[in-house]
């Protein structure tokens, strides 16, 4: 056994030295280019040279598209190239927001957008609410002195790492008409339900599956928040004779508030952008019962024979505005709660 360990160690050391050798070789090779450049521009301006690759990719693929998106939102037609697209002003936004009755998507010019918006609203409300509640409960449980806490913590965290497509397929297999969940239902004397083919069931499962997949992440953050609360506060409370419920209300909750706010806003921002899991699990169906905004953007601009890039971009801009408000809200609340604590 010991001999084998040393063989493994020696092999690892050999691989390590190999990687190091390649690293040194490559870096020296780049140095052949960078050192003359440094003599040319001087030491201080090297900073821009170091920034250049990242800034280039950033500008071309993030900054420039952000500006161009607004242009797309104000033009129409099926052509991709900007010079082929006629300017239409706010027509795309008008199309998105024209309804005779805003509570009824059927009366809207772009009824799928409104359905998607309404579904996204429902999804965000229940997914964020449910997930934060469950994550908080789980964090509180994990914060107790339990045996094998590390194991349980990683149990709840594991699904976070799975790809959305894998998550959706796992649940699609379980939720099928002939799936294991229906088998349990039948064995308990129930009737099998076509979970993914009935509108309200599909939405409920989409919400539950996304909670299942993401709650571990928020649990981890809340747990870190709980563990940063000084134990002395509880001890002091115990001396003063506070009840456990009181110490939860007056110590745990207020001190956890900043973490809760971060979790709430992060969850909100992610829920508004939800796409992958839902797209693979239900495809937005049945009908458009689980169609969410990002899927609407995808289908309007890409998943169709005659793409309407203008409408897709206008929806993107709208979504971006919502995200911006949420982010600003986070900054505002974050600052507010800090002041409150100080």
């Amino acid at each position: 056994m010991a001999a084998r360990a040393t063989v493994v160690q020696r092999a690892a050391a050999l691989v390590g030295r190999g990687v190091e050798g390649v690293y040194v070789l490559l870096m020296n090779a780049v140095g052949l280019l960078m050192e003359p450049l440094q003599r040319l521009v001087g030491m201080r301006r090297m900073a821009w040279l170091f920034l250049l690759p990242n800034l280039l990719v950033f500008t071309i693929f993030i900054l420039f598209p952000m500006v161009l998106n607004v242009y797309y939102a104000t033009t129409s037609g099926p052509r991709l190239y900007p010079q082929d697209r006629p300017f239409v002003g706010t027509a795309n936004f008008e199309r998105l927001f024209t309804c005779t009755d805003y509570t009824n998507p059927n009366t809207c010019l772009e009824d799928r957008f409104w359905r998607a918006a309404r579904n996204t609203g429902v999804f965000v409300l229940f997914q964020v609410g449910g997930m934060v509640a469950i994550s908080l409960l789980t964090a509180l449980v994990l914060n107790r002195k339990v045996v094998a806490r590390g194991f349980f913590r990683s149990v709840f965290f594991y699904p976070v790492l799975l790809s959305p497509v894998v998550v959706a397929l796992i649940w699609k297999w379980i939720l099928q008409r002939d799936g294991v969940l229906n088998a349990m239902l039948v064995s308990l004397g129930g009737e099998p339900i076509n979970f993914l083919l009935s509108g309200s069931w599909a939405m409920a499962w989409v919400i539950m599956v996304s909670i299942w997949a993401n709650m571990g992440f928020y649990t981890l953050i809340l747990l870190a928040g709980l563990q940063s609360i000084p134990v002395e506060l509880y001890d002091a409370g115990a001396i003063d004779g506070t009840s456990t419920l009181q110490s939860f209300r007056h110590i745990t909750l207020p001190l956890l508030m900043p973490t809760m706010m971060v979790v709430l806003v992060l969850a909100l921002i992610r829920a508004v952008q939800m796409f992958d899991e839902v797209f693979v699990l239900t495809g937005g169906g049945p009908g458009s019962a689980t169609l969410l905004l990002v899927q609407y953007i995808y289908q309007t601009g890409f998943g169709t024979q005659n793409p309407r890039f203008g409408l897709a971009a206008a929806t993107s801009v709208t979504l971006g505005a919502v995200l911006l408000v949420a982010t600003l809200l986070q900054l505002r609340i974050g600052r507010g709660s800090e002041r409150h604590l100080a």
Binding site: I62, Y72, L80, Y298, F302, F309, S316, L319, G320, L323
Partner: peptide, 8 residues
């Protein structure tokens, strides 16, 4: 998802 069209 907010800049799909222009990145494309």
């Amino acid at each position: 998802s907010v800049i799909l069209v222009p990145v494309y």
